[in-house]
Write a protein that binds this DNA or RNA. Sequence first.
DNA 1: ATAATTTCTTGATATTTGTCAAGCGCACAA
DNA 2: TTGTGCGCTTGACAAATATCAAGAAATTAT
Lengths: 190, 190
Amino acid sequence: MMTELENYIQNYFGVNKEEVTKISSYFKLLHLKKGEFFLKSGRYSDHLGFMQSGIMREFLNTNNKEVTKWISTKGYFSVDLASFIFKQPARWNIQALTDCELYVINQKDYQLIGQELSSWAVLEKLFLTKCFIILEERIVQHLSMSAEERYNQLFNFNPELFNQVSLQYLASMLGITPETLSRIRKNQLL
Amino acid sequence: MMTELENYIQNYFGVNKEEVTKISSYFKLLHLKKGEFFLKSGRYSDHLGFMQSGIMREFLNTNNKEVTKWISTKGYFSVDLASFIFKQPARWNIQALTDCELYVINQKDYQLIGQELSSWAVLEKLFLTKCFIILEERIVQHLSMSAEERYNQLFNFNPELFNQVSLQYLASMLGITPETLSRIRKNQLL
DNA sequence: ATAATTTCTTGATATTTGTCAAGCGCACAA
DNA sequence: TTGTGCGCTTGACAAATATCAAGAAATTAT
């Protein structure tokens, strides 16, 4: 049976089975208990994670406010990209909201893949571009949509999230207060 | 004398002179008159541009609203990344607000660089990551800052912009109306 | 099961931001 | 010069969202 990671690489990047196996062999399975941190702000993000199961939250603290940037579920990569690539101290906290299974690769092995797999540069490019596009889409949403529209967008994209994750975190990720989210949701019922 | 592009590659990516010259030889200088489009939404973004001089605006139209994503000046790359990398129709319009000088490279030559320069994969990774980080920072701003705070951030980062670019575009880029920007600026004087 | 704690909802109110309409000022053209 | 148009500002008002406080609901711990 294939892991989520293998599925992802094969489907998203269109890589053949052999290479998929090769790539995924560099990753190791990591279990995180609910509440544990995959990364703490200020540390170095020296592992790239890919989520097999569970839910994680990426957030930071800034002028007394906690900002949730993203909720990751099955099929997402999890890393502080700036820290991982540029070897700076991490800005983000990444915490498990439930027990999680992650496939992780460390910096060193990540470098190794690049040396051993000629096709890796292309995959890496696609991966980074995808990360960029996701953020770009969110910027557009903030520049052109109301809180309610952003909520609908997120809800339609991933309704289950709202049963699995504390609403305060989703509110923060949408850039609104929990009270406003509560009222928007009430509105949607009418 | 070095071009902005060569400066950028050398300083930002820490590449030696020889490689810098090699890389920049793939780029060709392109002149754009004020008002001309470097890219139109729906077309394919088959050129990556690097700005030597002038100002360009990246925007799209969505439900009767024009959204300005970014104003590019000297030292910025200009491209619809999703279109350039994934070969999709472009989402963004890129238009010259003033006469512009761009160093451009087409898809084919871009591929070639990768094949001829072993170090290219690393540079590409850094480039894409930088693009990502810029957007990530903007997301954080929208999740945690008021319109006025975002204005101050942008103004402190690049005050000249407000003398060179129509305020309505800067308002759009900040995610606010021109009226609100006008009032914020009035406030700042007191 | 019960108590304790946290999260969610609701109401009242304040603040921020948007909308619409009018007027001002500057640039450019006839 | 004198319009003409466009972008910017201002005012009055409306809508969206935040804040604060209280209570209800859900979750967690004892």
